[in-house]
């Protein structure tokens, strides 16, 4: 045993003590509250997505003539294929939900404020990356809604002034959906976006480590005493519990509401009812509220405002006395998001 350790130490000169110190960061006490662990949830789900995604890619074929059939093969023929595909689908849904909840929590606790503005923007990038993963993943199934969703999205991109046409052509590999389009979606979904996501997560966590977790204090906590507790084992256990709960929930969802297959994409017939995945309901509703370019530009503006929010907030707090206006803006925005999602969900078309 010691020989092996010495052999390893000679070649990989990392001190176990230093490694432990590096990973075992003291964790603020408020993290004992469960809803403050939401940041770890999407990370855990992302790992699930990588594992199941890599396996699904073993059978998936990104070509219009075979894509749907290969998904059918996974769903109907491969061992446990239906289960893994359902887990992948549900984990995606939960991941987006968890990212959004995490962001809401960060927002309302003001954790984006100085010095954490950069990390907020990294987080925003993570949100956009996750949404794009959701979109590209859905397009890969090549059922009717995948096809028409992708077509509609590309044409939305087309309405962006100046660069729209270019974007659309880049996205679709041509003027319209063609037999080379799916390969792009596949590479985006399975390589480019996950790569970005890994890099962004690394920066995100590094920044958390460098800046430390925002410390919060609750009224019912004892005023004195140790305000921090060690990451290992206490918080690790918390994350393990969350991980297991997620696995059980995913298994339950996958067995009770398994991923199904819609009809094969048909470029000649647009389905009567066309709706994106739930996490795009808001954008979909927004597009219906106003026309083409206006909708796209206003959406771009909203995303820009969200990115720049820490600075806007800081500017606001310096200039006015309404220091907690962000809370009310947040409440309004959240209600609007929920409202538009529900509105779209119940809308027949």
């Amino acid at each position: 045993m010691t020989t092996i350790r010495r052999w390893l130490d000679d070649r990989i000169p990392i001190e176990p003590g230093a490694l432990r110190a590096l990973t075992n960061e003291p964790v603020p006490h408020h993290l004992k509250r469960w809803w403050f662990a939401l940041g770890g949830t999407p990370a855990y789900l992302f790992v699930v997505q990588i594992v199941t995604g890599v396996l699904l890619a073993l059978y998936y074929q990104p070509h219009p003539s075979t894509a749907w059939e290969s998904v059918r093969y996974i769903t109907e023929d491969a061992n446990f294929g239906w289960y893994l595909r359902s887990v992948h689908k549900w984990a995606a849904t939960l991941m987006i939900a968890a990212v959004v909840l995490h962001q809401i929590r960060v927002y309302f606790t003001g954790a984006y404020r100085k010095p954490r503005e950069v990390n907020w923007m990294v987080g925003m990038s993570l949100l956009l990356c996750t949404l794009m993963l959701g979109f590209t993943g859905y397009s890969l199934v090549f059922e009717q809604l995948s096809y028409w969703g992708a077509t509609v999205s590309a044409n939305i991109a087309d309405t962006i002034p100046v660069i729209g046409g270019f974007l659309k052509k880049i996205l679709l590999a041509g003027e319209a959906y063609n037999e080379r389009t799916l390969a792009r979606f596949f590479v985006l979904h399975a390589a480019v976006l996950p790569g970005f996501l890994v890099a962004l997560i690394a920066v995100h966590i590094a920044l958390v480590r460098i800046q430390g977790v925002t410390e919060l204090k609750f009224r019912d906590e004892p005023a004195t005493g140790d305000r921090k507790f060690p990451f290992i084992p206490d918080h690790l256990y918390t994350e393990l519990i969350i991980g297991l709960v997620l696995m059980v929930v995913l298994s339950a969802l996958a067995t009770l509401a398994p991923a199904t297959m819609g009809p094969l994409a048909d470029p000649l017939t647009t389905p009567e009812e066309i709706k994106p995945e739930w996490f795009f309901y808001v954008t979909f509703r927004w597009l219906k509220l106003m026309g083409g370019t206006a909708a796209v530009l206003s959406m771009g503006l909203i995303v820009f405002l969200m990115f720049a929010w820490p600075f806007i907030d800081a500017w606001w707090r310096r200039r006015t006395r309404l220091r907690e206006a962000s809370v009310w803006i947040g409440v309004a925005a959240t209600l609007l998001l929920i409202g538009m999602t529900i509105r779209e969900a119940v809308a027949p078309h």
Binding site: V51, L55, L58, D77, A78, N79, F80, G81, Y83, L84, M247
Partner: peptide, 12 residues
């Protein structure tokens, strides 16, 4: 879970 993954990889 790992066993399920393994079965998935193995030809149906």
């Amino acid at each position: 879970f790992g066993a399920v993954l393994g079965r998935f990889i193995y030809p149906a």
